[in-house]
Amino acid sequence: MRNDETSKLHILLVNDDGINAPGIYALGKEFHQCYDVTMVAPSEQRSASGHSITISRPLTVIRHHFDDLNIKAYSVDGTPADCVRLALDQLVDKRVDMVVSGINRGFNLGMDVLYSGTVSAAVEAAIYKLPSIAVSTEQFDKVEEYAAAAHYAHRVLKKAVEKGMKNDVVLNLNVPPMKAEEIKGIKVCRMGNMVYGNYFVERKNFEGKADEDHRIYDIKGNIFEPEAEDMDTFYIKQGYATVTPLHYDLTNFKIIQEVDGWF
C-alpha cells in the first residue's frame, strides 16, 4: 500500500446494504475529495449474506451516477463478496490501495462478523492481499446520520496508511450512534462473545393445525452479550469506537499440535 502523501490513493467502497444505502453514500461523500474512489455494491439489500458467492448464474452490472460525487459507481446483482471479486477482476482500471466496506446499518460486534456481508466483503479484499476496513454503526436512515462513522472511518484509514497496515489485515470498526465530538475515542479490542439465542415457532393454519407437508416458522429469540473489559461489546456501550483486527485464517493454532497427536 502506498503511504506517500503525493500519491492519491484509490479506494474501493463496497457494502451489503445495497448501492442506494445511505451508509455507503456517506463514505463516498467523505472520501471522494481526497482520494480516487470506485463504488461497487449489491443492487439490493444483502445483509447477513456472510461470505457467499454466486456460481450458478451470470452477474449483471449497472453503472450508477451520483450528481454530487465524482466517483465511478456500479451495482451488481450478487453478494458483497461478488462485488469485491468482480470489481478487482473487471470493473476497476487501476490498482486498488484500500477496500472500505460499509457503513453498515447496524453494528457488527462479536460473533456478528461470522454472518456479516459487510465484514465478509472486507475479508474478501484481504484474500486478494488488499488491506481493508469494515465500518458499522447503529441503524440510521439518513446520510447525515452516518457522518460520525464516516469521519472515524477516514481517521482509521489515514492511520492505517501512515503505519503501513499489512495487506492481509481487516480492521473491523464499529462506531457508536453519537456525534463525532461526543465519542470518547478509539479502543482496539477483541471480539465480544455476543451470540443469538434464536429459536423457531411454527405457525398454525386457520384451524389451529400444522400442515405436515407445508410448514412456516417464525424466528424468535434474544441476543446474549457476555462482556469483559477487553471486548468490543463492552467498549461500544461506553461511548468508544472499537477496532478489532481480523484475519481470514481460522486455524486454531492453540490446539494444532494436540490434534496432530491424535493421528
Score class of each variant (00 low, 15 high):
Lys159Arg: 11
Glu162Val: 00
Met194Glu: 13
Gly192Ser: 08
Lys158Gly: 01
His154Gln: 14
Phe200Gln: 04
Asn205Thr: 15
Pro176Lys: 01
Leu157Val: 08
Arg155His: 12
Lys163Met: 04
Lys163Cys: 02
Lys159Met: 08
Lys158Glu: 15
Met165Ser: 01
Leu157Asp: 10
Lys158Met: 10
Leu157Lys: 05
Ala153Tyr: 09
Arg155Met: 09
Arg203Cys: 08
Asp168Glu: 12
Val161Ile: 14
Asn174Lys: 00
Phe200Met: 03
Ile186Glu: 14
Lys179Ala: 09
Glu181Ser: 14
Lys163Asp: 12
Asn174Glu: 03
Met165Val: 10
Ala153Glu: 11
Val169Leu: 10
Met191Cys: 10
Arg190Ala: 06
Val161Asp: 03
Ile183Lys: 04
Gly185Trp: 13
Met165Gly: 01
Met191Arg: 06
Gly197Asp: 15
Tyr199Gly: 00
Lys159Asp: 13
Arg203Tyr: 09
Val161Pro: 01
Leu171Ile: 07
Arg190Tyr: 10
Tyr152Asn: 03
Arg203Val: 05
Lys204Arg: 10
Asn172Lys: 02
Glu162Thr: 06
Glu202Ala: 04
Gly192Leu: 03
Met165Leu: 15
Met178Gln: 09
Glu181Gly: 04
Asp168Val: 00
Gly192Lys: 03
Asn198Cys: 01
Glu182Leu: 00
Leu173Gln: 09
Glu202Gly: 07
Ala180Gly: 04
Val188Met: 09
Glu162Asp: 12
Ala160Tyr: 07
Val169Phe: 12
Val175Lys: 00
Ala160Arg: 01
Val170Asn: 11
Val156Arg: 04
Asn205Arg: 12
Arg190His: 13
